[in-house]
Protein backbone atom coordinates (compact mmCIF):
# COMPACT_ATOMS: atom_id res chain seq x y z
CA UNK A 1 0.00 0.00 0.00
CA UNK A 2 2.75 2.30 1.05
CA UNK A 3 4.67 1.64 -2.17
CA UNK A 4 1.58 2.24 -4.28
CA UNK A 5 1.03 5.46 -2.46
CA UNK A 6 4.59 6.55 -3.23
CA UNK A 7 4.15 5.74 -6.93
CA UNK A 8 0.88 7.60 -6.98
CA UNK A 9 2.63 10.58 -5.42
CA UNK A 10 5.38 10.42 -8.03
CA UNK A 11 2.83 10.16 -10.81
CA UNK A 12 0.83 13.02 -9.48
CA UNK A 13 4.01 15.06 -9.12
CA UNK A 14 5.17 14.48 -12.66
CA UNK A 15 1.68 15.13 -13.96
CA UNK A 16 1.58 18.43 -12.17
CA UNK A 17 5.02 19.34 -13.53
CA UNK A 18 3.78 18.42 -16.99
CA UNK A 19 0.66 20.50 -16.47
CA UNK A 20 2.71 23.44 -15.25
CA UNK A 21 4.91 23.19 -18.32
CA UNK A 22 1.84 23.13 -20.49
CA UNK A 23 0.45 26.17 -18.73
CA UNK A 24 3.75 27.94 -19.13
CA UNK A 25 3.76 27.29 -22.88
CA UNK A 26 0.19 28.40 -23.03
CA UNK A 27 1.05 31.58 -21.14
CA UNK A 28 3.98 32.27 -23.44
CA UNK A 29 1.84 31.75 -26.50
CA UNK A 30 -0.78 34.05 -25.00
CA UNK A 31 1.83 36.69 -24.31
CA UNK A 32 3.21 36.65 -27.83
CA UNK A 33 -0.32 36.82 -29.22
CA UNK A 34 -0.94 39.81 -27.04
CA UNK A 35 2.21 41.61 -28.18
CA UNK A 36 1.25 40.94 -31.80
CA UNK A 37 -2.10 42.41 -30.97
CA UNK A 38 -0.45 45.47 -29.48
CA UNK A 39 1.65 45.93 -32.58
CA UNK A 40 -1.42 45.69 -34.75
CA UNK A 41 -3.24 48.24 -32.65
CA UNK A 42 -0.33 50.62 -32.81
CA UNK A 43 -0.03 50.34 -36.53
CA UNK A 44 -3.77 50.81 -36.86
CA UNK A 45 -3.44 54.04 -34.95
CA UNK A 46 -0.50 55.17 -37.00
CA UNK A 47 -2.61 54.49 -40.06
CA UNK A 48 -5.41 56.54 -38.59
CA UNK A 49 -3.08 59.46 -38.00
CA UNK A 50 -1.74 59.18 -41.53
CA UNK A 51 -5.29 59.19 -42.82
CA UNK A 52 -6.09 62.28 -40.80
CA UNK A 53 -3.00 64.01 -42.12
CA UNK A 54 -4.02 63.46 -45.72
CA UNK A 55 -7.35 65.07 -44.87
CA UNK A 56 -5.42 68.24 -44.12
CA UNK A 57 -4.47 69.19 -47.60
CA UNK A 58 -7.75 70.97 -48.14
CA UNK A 59 -6.61 74.35 -46.84
CA UNK A 60 -7.57 76.89 -49.44
CA UNK A 61 -4.85 79.16 -50.79
CA UNK A 62 -6.68 82.25 -49.61
CA UNK A 63 -6.44 81.32 -45.96
CA UNK A 64 -2.75 80.42 -45.97
CA UNK A 65 -0.37 82.72 -44.20
CA UNK A 66 1.91 82.62 -47.21
CA UNK A 67 -0.72 84.51 -49.20
CA UNK A 68 0.62 87.53 -47.35
CA UNK A 69 4.24 87.03 -48.37
CA UNK A 70 5.36 89.43 -51.08
CA UNK A 71 6.38 87.29 -54.04
CA UNK A 72 9.52 89.35 -54.60
CA UNK A 73 12.41 88.57 -56.87
CA UNK A 74 15.57 87.42 -55.09
CA UNK A 75 19.04 86.71 -56.40
CA UNK A 76 20.92 83.78 -54.95
CA UNK A 77 24.65 83.15 -54.45
CA UNK A 78 25.12 81.98 -58.03
CA UNK A 79 23.26 84.95 -59.52
CA UNK A 80 20.15 82.87 -60.19
CA UNK A 81 16.89 84.83 -60.01
CA UNK A 82 14.14 83.24 -57.90
CA UNK A 83 10.71 84.38 -56.78
CA UNK A 84 10.33 84.10 -53.01
CA UNK A 85 6.94 82.43 -53.00
CA UNK A 86 6.70 80.77 -56.40
CA UNK A 87 10.17 79.23 -56.47
CA UNK A 88 11.06 78.80 -52.81
CA UNK A 89 8.09 78.53 -50.48
CA UNK A 90 5.15 77.16 -52.45
CA UNK A 91 3.93 73.82 -51.08
CA UNK A 92 7.23 73.13 -49.37
CA UNK A 93 8.68 72.80 -45.90
CA UNK A 94 10.72 75.95 -45.47
CA UNK A 95 13.24 77.22 -42.97
CA UNK A 96 13.90 80.94 -43.20
CA UNK A 97 16.37 83.22 -41.45
CA UNK A 98 17.72 86.72 -41.95
CA UNK A 99 21.46 87.36 -41.78
CA UNK A 100 24.24 89.44 -43.30
CA UNK A 101 27.69 88.32 -44.25
CA UNK A 102 29.51 90.88 -42.13
CA UNK A 103 27.53 90.05 -38.97
CA UNK A 104 29.82 89.09 -36.12
CA UNK A 105 26.99 88.69 -33.59
CA UNK A 106 24.53 85.83 -33.85
CA UNK A 107 24.91 84.96 -37.56
CA UNK A 108 28.00 82.72 -37.45
CA UNK A 109 26.28 80.51 -34.86
CA UNK A 110 23.02 80.54 -36.78
CA UNK A 111 24.69 79.52 -40.03
CA UNK A 112 26.52 76.65 -38.33
CA UNK A 113 23.28 75.45 -36.71
CA UNK A 114 21.42 75.54 -40.01
CA UNK A 115 24.29 73.65 -41.65
CA UNK A 116 23.81 70.89 -39.08
CA UNK A 117 20.02 70.99 -39.34
CA UNK A 118 20.21 70.69 -43.11
CA UNK A 119 22.18 67.49 -42.80
CA UNK A 120 20.07 66.02 -39.98
CA UNK A 121 16.69 66.91 -41.44
CA UNK A 122 17.58 65.59 -44.89
CA UNK A 123 17.21 62.12 -43.41
CA UNK A 124 13.68 62.92 -42.18
CA UNK A 125 12.32 64.74 -45.19
CA UNK A 126 12.30 64.08 -48.86
CA UNK A 127 14.81 66.50 -50.24
CA UNK A 128 12.59 68.15 -52.78
CA UNK A 129 10.03 69.13 -50.13
CA UNK A 130 12.49 70.80 -47.76
CA UNK A 131 14.30 74.04 -48.46
CA UNK A 132 16.43 76.47 -46.49
CA UNK A 133 16.78 80.15 -47.27
CA UNK A 134 19.01 82.74 -45.63
CA UNK A 135 18.06 86.26 -46.64
CA UNK A 136 20.40 89.22 -46.40
CA UNK A 137 19.67 92.21 -44.18
CA UNK A 138 22.43 94.13 -45.91
CA UNK A 139 21.76 93.81 -49.65
CA UNK A 140 24.11 96.69 -50.53
CA UNK A 141 27.14 94.75 -49.37
CA UNK A 142 25.77 91.25 -49.87
CA UNK A 143 25.92 90.81 -53.63
CA UNK A 144 25.94 87.26 -55.06
CA UNK A 145 29.74 87.05 -55.02
CA UNK A 146 29.82 87.99 -51.33
CA UNK A 147 27.18 85.35 -50.62
CA UNK A 148 29.21 82.77 -52.52
CA UNK A 149 32.36 83.68 -50.54
CA UNK A 150 30.32 83.33 -47.32
CA UNK A 151 29.15 79.88 -48.39
CA UNK A 152 32.68 78.84 -49.17
CA UNK A 153 33.92 80.15 -45.82
CA UNK A 154 31.37 77.96 -44.06
CA UNK A 155 32.11 75.03 -46.39
CA UNK A 156 28.50 74.82 -47.43
CA UNK A 157 28.19 72.52 -50.41
CA UNK A 158 25.43 70.73 -52.23
CA UNK A 159 26.81 67.22 -52.03
CA UNK A 160 24.83 64.10 -51.11
CA UNK A 161 21.58 65.55 -52.38
CA UNK A 162 21.18 67.81 -49.39
CA UNK A 163 18.11 70.07 -49.41
CA UNK A 164 18.44 73.36 -51.30
CA UNK A 165 19.89 76.21 -49.29
CA UNK A 166 19.54 79.60 -50.90
CA UNK A 167 21.57 82.58 -49.80
CA UNK A 168 19.49 85.41 -51.16
CA UNK A 169 19.70 89.11 -51.68
CA UNK A 170 17.52 91.59 -53.51
CA UNK A 171 16.03 95.04 -53.49
CA UNK A 172 16.42 96.67 -50.08
CA UNK A 173 12.84 97.95 -49.83
CA UNK A 174 11.39 94.66 -50.97
CA UNK A 175 13.49 92.70 -48.51
CA UNK A 176 12.23 94.93 -45.69
CA UNK A 177 8.69 94.24 -46.80
CA UNK A 178 9.43 90.52 -46.78
CA UNK A 179 10.97 90.65 -43.32
CA UNK A 180 7.92 92.38 -41.91
CA UNK A 181 5.52 89.96 -43.58
CA UNK A 182 7.37 87.14 -41.82
CA UNK A 183 6.81 88.82 -38.47
CA UNK A 184 10.55 89.31 -37.89
CA UNK A 185 10.57 92.87 -36.62
CA UNK A 186 10.51 94.83 -33.40
CA UNK A 187 7.53 97.00 -32.51
CA UNK A 188 10.01 99.52 -31.13
CA UNK A 189 11.21 101.45 -34.21
CA UNK A 190 14.71 102.30 -32.95
CA UNK A 191 15.33 98.74 -31.90
CA UNK A 192 13.98 97.50 -35.22
CA UNK A 193 16.39 99.75 -37.11
CA UNK A 194 19.39 98.42 -35.16
CA UNK A 195 20.83 95.74 -37.45
CA UNK A 196 23.05 94.31 -34.71
CA UNK A 197 19.91 93.44 -32.71
CA UNK A 198 18.27 91.56 -35.59
CA UNK A 199 16.20 88.48 -34.84
CA UNK A 200 18.33 85.41 -34.14
CA UNK A 201 15.41 83.12 -34.81
CA UNK A 202 14.50 80.49 -37.36
CA UNK A 203 11.10 80.77 -38.97
CA UNK A 204 9.98 77.41 -40.24
CA UNK A 205 6.80 75.95 -41.54
CA UNK A 206 4.90 73.78 -43.92
CA UNK A 207 3.23 75.93 -46.54
CA UNK A 208 0.82 73.25 -47.66
CA UNK A 209 -0.47 72.64 -44.12
CA UNK A 210 -0.19 76.30 -43.14
CA UNK A 211 1.79 75.47 -39.99
CA UNK A 212 4.39 78.05 -39.01
CA UNK A 213 6.52 78.68 -36.01
CA UNK A 214 9.60 80.68 -35.03
CA UNK A 215 12.12 79.67 -32.42
CA UNK A 216 15.43 81.07 -31.18
CA UNK A 217 18.45 79.47 -32.82
CA UNK A 218 20.27 79.52 -29.49
CA UNK A 219 17.95 77.01 -27.82
CA UNK A 220 18.79 73.34 -27.30
CA UNK A 221 19.66 71.89 -30.71
CA UNK A 222 17.82 68.56 -30.32
CA UNK A 223 14.68 70.30 -29.12
CA UNK A 224 14.83 72.74 -32.03
CA UNK A 225 15.17 69.86 -34.45
CA UNK A 226 12.25 68.01 -32.83
CA UNK A 227 10.06 71.10 -33.07
CA UNK A 228 10.98 71.56 -36.75
CA UNK A 229 10.08 67.95 -37.53
CA UNK A 230 6.79 68.29 -35.68
CA UNK A 231 5.77 71.56 -37.29
CA UNK A 232 6.99 70.89 -40.83
CA UNK A 233 6.40 67.16 -41.18
CA UNK A 234 3.92 65.84 -43.74
CA UNK A 235 3.33 62.48 -42.08
CA UNK A 236 3.12 61.10 -38.58
CA UNK A 237 6.49 59.43 -39.15
CA UNK A 238 8.19 62.69 -40.09
CA UNK A 239 6.57 64.57 -37.26
CA UNK A 240 6.68 62.29 -34.28
CA UNK A 241 9.59 59.91 -34.69
CA UNK A 242 11.47 62.05 -32.16
CA UNK A 243 8.53 61.87 -29.75
CA UNK A 244 8.47 58.08 -30.10
CA UNK A 245 12.13 58.02 -29.14
CA UNK A 246 11.29 59.99 -26.03
CA UNK A 247 8.57 57.49 -25.16
CA UNK A 248 11.06 54.66 -25.16
CA UNK A 249 13.08 56.37 -22.43
CA UNK A 250 12.21 55.59 -18.81
CA UNK A 251 9.51 57.85 -17.43
CA UNK A 252 11.67 58.78 -14.48
CA UNK A 253 14.96 60.45 -15.28
CA UNK A 254 17.90 60.37 -12.92
CA UNK A 255 17.13 63.21 -10.57
CA UNK A 256 20.66 63.66 -9.30
CA UNK A 257 22.15 64.53 -12.67
CA UNK A 258 23.18 68.15 -12.45
CA UNK A 259 23.09 70.13 -15.62
CA UNK A 260 25.21 73.14 -14.93
Amino acid sequence: MKKFGFIAFLLAGSASVFLMALQGREALRHESAQSENVQQLQSRNEARVAELSIDQFVAEDGSRSSARFPNIQLVDQSGRKVRFYDDVVRNRCVCINFFYTQCDGSCPGTTSTIKKLRRDLAAQFENDALVFISISLDPENDQPDALERYRKAYRITDENELPDWYFATGDKEELEQLRRSLGLYELDATRDADKTEHAATLTFGNDRLNRWSALPVGMDYEQLKTAMCRMMGNSARQRYSAVSQLRSLPATLPGSLEMD
Binding site: G105, L184, H198, A200, P216, M219, D220, Q223
Partner: peptide
Protein backbone atom coordinates in the same frame (compact mmCIF):
# COMPACT_ATOMS: atom_id res chain seq x y z
CA UNK B 1 16.72 89.61 -26.95
CA UNK B 2 17.22 89.32 -30.70
CA UNK B 3 13.60 88.62 -31.44
CA UNK B 4 13.20 85.92 -28.79
CA UNK B 5 12.21 85.64 -25.15
CA UNK B 6 14.51 84.70 -22.34
CA UNK B 7 14.14 84.24 -18.61
CA UNK B 8 17.31 84.86 -16.62
CA UNK B 9 19.08 84.94 -20.00
CA UNK B 10 18.20 81.33 -20.66
CA UNK B 11 15.94 79.74 -23.24
CA UNK B 12 13.22 77.31 -22.22
CA UNK B 13 14.38 73.71 -22.10
CA UNK B 14 11.70 71.02 -22.06
CA UNK B 15 13.84 68.73 -19.96
CA UNK B 16 15.45 71.14 -17.56
Amino acid sequence: RKGAWQINQEFFDEFK
